[in-house]
Design a protein around this nucleic acid. Structure first.
Lengths: 205, 205
DNA sequence: CCGTGGTGATTGAACGCCCATTCAGTCTCA
DNA sequence: TGAGACTGAATGGGCGTTCAATCACCACGG
């Protein structure tokens, strides 16, 4: 039999290659990244990467899918644990910021490298974004239905605006030479978002 | 003397190449765009493009710089014509949406193709974005100083959040198969942004 | 306990594709 | 008629990818 040990070793090697790819892509950018360097940094021969991934672009897809899926899972779990739509939204946004702040190289790949223009890749990347947008939209619609949020902003527009605001803060953070803590910007960002979404208190009754 | 006619002809040819580049980049994506196709569509020989631009990437830079500068100029003029910071912000955002909606191919290049590499993004594209962000930040700070906007959201965070929100709506519009009018989404977007920025009426005194 | 054969994983030098760019020749016009 | 603009076939090189050769490991028989 192949044996669990063998599978573990294989898995470890796969992870090493993937991690090396994240770092090299982040440092040099996808186009200037050399497969040779990914292999070298993972401690394997050039050809070995092709035993684990179909090619350079497949690495990018794997980085996206594995991390995006894990993030979405955590975000949904976070949201599920709250019953107030406001708390749900807050948790998801905080999770978004914290997740990417914890791994700058990965954040770089997500914010910059995954947006290069190969058609099918964009479809893959946008597929994950679309799923995240749907989560936001559902939470916001729930907030509107419960009377917490104002009803003159369609949930899909709101979801995209919120995503865009968060996304841009992260992109600046990734590109900054001396980045200020992302989590530290969460409070004013949330004030802005909630101020925009919530019904005006004065208008009640 | 070279003659004005000659310069006009030269300028027309330059524009034709630039326009062809916008279209080919938008259709195929920067990487899959072929210089041959740009030349063909501009009605010139392959080599001619190199008499007008240094190379493929220089086309991208030229597209960015010429259009971004024109946009910034119009945005500043719009803002200068208003005296209320709220009206300024509104005008600039509307200008942003309308400008890109009027040229979908150009919008595609701006939203997708110009973000393809770290080097390019940091050095060239982000320079223009930074200038736009500074404009937004100045307007917002003015609004805060005048008591129109709340003072617990730093202007730089607000500027980036606003830019991100607008930017994401445009990107979805560019990527959508059947896009809904961008200008039509301006009203709810502005409600969201102003709701987030303005002081709560209830807190006055 | 060794030796041995076989299987699958790994290696890395060499390949070849692809296309941006060049430049020697041709054309145009004053 | 010549200076500059234009042409487009030819070129070159960079790098992702391949694959014949080698290695590591294990099962098994003696």
């Amino acid at each position: 039999m192949g044996g669990a040990l063998r599978n573990d070793a294989r898995e470890a090697r796969r992870s090493a290659i993937l991690r090396a790819a994240v770092e090299v892509f982040a440092e040099r950018g996808y186009e200037d990244a050399r497969m040779r360097e990914v292999a070298e940094r993972a401690g394997v021969a050039d050809g070995t990467t092709y035993l684990y991934f179909q090619g350079k672009e497949a690495l990018l897809v794997a980085i996206l899918e594995e991390n995006a899926k894990a993030f979405l899972k955590r975000a949904r779990r976070d949201a599920g644990r709250q019953k107030d739509p406001g708390a749900k939204l807050r948790k998801v946004i905080e999770r978004h910021l914290v997740s990417l702040e914890s791994d700058r190289a990965l954040a770089h790949v997500f914010q910059i490298e995954l947006r290069h223009s190969r058609r099918f890749l964009r479809q893959v990347a946008r597929g994950q974004v679309a799923e995240y947008l749907r989560l936001l939209q559902r939470i916001i619609a729930e907030g509107t239905a419960s009377g917490l949020f104002r009803d003159d902003i369609p949930a899909d527009v709101a979801a995209r605006a919120v995503f865009g605001a968060v996304d841009e803060l992260i992109t600046s953070w990734v590109l900054a030479d001396r980045p200020r803590s992302l989590a530290g910007q969460a409070a004013p960002l949330l004030r802005l978002i909630f101020g925009g979404l919530e019904r005006r208190a004065g208008g009640s009754r």
